[in-house]
């Protein structure tokens, strides 16, 4: 685990953190896999928020059957927009800790504790999952190269020393979540979050997490060409801000 800023977190937190943790899952056309993912998370965490980002399949009904809070974007706005919607709803529900979790089954429920516990202990305000500190299963070489280049890009542009730039597995304290405001609706939000962490000077750590690549998650994931588009969107947004 790597502590990466010098600031100190603001308050001590209750040991009973599971009850106050809200898991935010952004989902777009994940009808085939959202149900097992939500059920698995709900075995350990009662508060699961699924944001159906304008899916044309039965993602909404599938998530609702599992007992999650389900929000629906009337039209597709992108993963960044869906995550921000989930975070704002979680804050409204009184969440003390907010975890963003992928809908495609790439993340392990067991790793949630590793992300939230340092925040609950008061060691930091934000915990970022890193697949390069942890283990990955069946990651293709091209994906590994793209992600490594994304890390170098983030380090150069955002000037934050992270080991994994586009991992959707993160945890925020309530204080941190209130200071984050994702304005880049699509995939470039991951770089925007790193910028906001730097700007707010909130203490963060990187936590090793396991990412399970499956045929399904690889099909849904970003291609190398998509990565270039993300970089262009992000740079344009920075210039025009």
């Amino acid at each position: 685990m790597r502590m990466t800023t010098s600031s100190t977190p603001s308050e001590d937190r209750s040991a009973d953190w599971r009850r106050d943790t809200y898991i935010v899952i952004a989902a777009y056309n994940e009808g085939t896999c959202i149900e097992p993912v939500v059920r698995e998370v709900r075995e350990q965490y009662a508060n699961v928020i699924v944001v159906d980002d304008g899916s044309s399949d039965d993602t909404f009904d599938a998530a609702k059957r599992c007992g999650a809070f389900v929000l629906r974007h009337a039209i597709n706005r992108g993963q960044g927009a869906a995550i921000q919607t989930g975070i704002e709803f979680a804050l409204k529900c009184g969440a003390a800790y907010i975890v963003t979790f992928d809908a495609d089954g790439q993340h392990r429920v067991e790793d949630i504790a590793a992300l939230v516990e340092p925040i609950a202990r008061g060691d930091c305000e934000i915990a970022l999952g890193s697949r390069f500190l942890g283990t990955t299963t069946k990651m293709p070489a091209t994906r590994r190269l793209t992600l490594r280049l994304a890390v170098l890009f983030t380090r150069a542009v955002s000037r934050v020393n992270v080991t994994d730039a586009h991992n959707g597995f993160r945890a925020f304290s309530r204080t941190a979540a209130r200071q984050m405001n994702i304005t880049l609706d699509r995939m470039a939000h991951a770089s925007e979050l790193i910028d906001q962490i730097r700007a707010t000077r909130l203490p963060f750590i990187e936590v090793p997490v396991e990412i399970r690549y499956t045929e399904y998650s690889l099909r849904k994931g970003q291609s190398s060409r998509g990565a270039i588009q993300i970089a262009i969107h992000y740079l344009l947004a920075r210039v025009l801000q």
């Binding site: 909404f60 609702k64 809070f69 929000l71 009337a74 706005r77 919607t85 709803f89 409204k92």
Partner: peptide, 13 residues
């Protein structure tokens, strides 16, 4: 606008 509507109409489990 989409976010406002989604939060307003959130489905309670």
């Amino acid at each position: 606008l989409v976010r406002h509507l989604a939060i307003r109409d959130a489905a309670d489990p």
